[in-house]
Design a binder for these strands. Structure first.
Lengths: 159, 159
DNA sequence: AGGGGTATTGATACAGTATAACAGTTATAT
DNA sequence: ATATAACTGTTATACTGTATCAATACCCCT
């Protein structure tokens, strides 16, 4: 399990790195990263935060790439299905994956004060829950792990 | 971590047991289990499945206990806040807690075919995620763990 | 190159989920 | 008793997500 980041980072290279990784994946697997899909991913990478579908739609609309909900939702469906973007169920929002291509069960730390979201990289929860599921005869296909609380910055401000 | 139940059980005593536990908790903590709140809990215990807020509202309406969304949502807010009911984020639905009063981090197994939900009883995920969060300086207050897949019954039917 | 099947986009309408705001009522604590 | 806080009732509206069908672009095959 790697540590998530509420800290600063080299954002430009983080964006281009993720985008390249996704493009490579799509090429390898024969997936079509169409203009709308690519742009939605770029918007999410650029904002580097969880965004609602309608926030994304507003940006698409401003760029003339489609203005109706299904445009955004379909692009998001594609990106989520292939794990390039994760949905934060707690927020009904979407965030670009921090490790596209790497097999992992994402876990998120969500600040209830500023809504910032950090992605943790783990495979352990799958194993844990897997034991319980096996006993019950349940086959897990996908796991949602989201922890809500206070990020370091908001703790300081609350103090 | 205890095993969840997709199996049959003595439902009448399961309902009365949970309800009594909640009533005792409310008495001990000075919480007000008002008629609407109690009825919403009873409905969820009775149905023993995840229900949408509007499904619950339909039943309240049929019983003359209030017909507008805030009535149901406010009762659910109370029940969720005090952990008598859990929200299944993946389904935008609510389910009565199987272990009211016992301190636990709930985890759910959600069948994508029949939407049945089983609650697993665990404290381990908190510890796991806790390590990651501690490294990041993040304070966890609440955790959502939801695994989606196929329940035993739907696996048979798919075969 | 042409043609047929599939995937994707565009557009309209609508369904489902949730909350803001304010007035009226009930319970609780001095 | 009465002041305070908590809860309920009601209206209106905001937010999130999907069904449907038509039009277009892509891909593979001959």
């Amino acid at each position: 399990m790697t540590t998530p980041g509420f800290e600063h980072h080299d954002h430009a290279s983080c964006i281009s790195g993720s985008l390249e990784a996704v493009e490579k994946q799509c090429k390898d697997k024969g997936l079509r990263l169409t203009p709308v899909r690519k742009r939605v991913l770029e918007i999410l990478l650029d904002e580097h935060r969880a965004m609602g579908a309608y926030d994304i739609l507003d940006r698409l609309r401003a760029e003339g790439l489609g203005s109706q909900p299904p445009i955004a939702y379909r692009a998001l469906d594609f990106l989520v299905k292939h794990r390039f973007v994760h949905k934060i169920e707690r927020l009904n929002a979407f965030i670009a994956c921090g490790h596209p291509g790497e097999r992992h069960v994402p876990a998120f730390l969500i600040c209830r004060s500023c809504d910032s979201v950090a992605e943790a990289h783990t495979d352990l929860t799958q194993g844990r829950l897997g034991d319980v599921a096996r006993d019950a005869g349940f086959v897990i296909e996908r796991t949602v792990v989201e922890a809500e609380g206070l990020c370091p910055k908001c703790q300081e401000e609350a103090a």
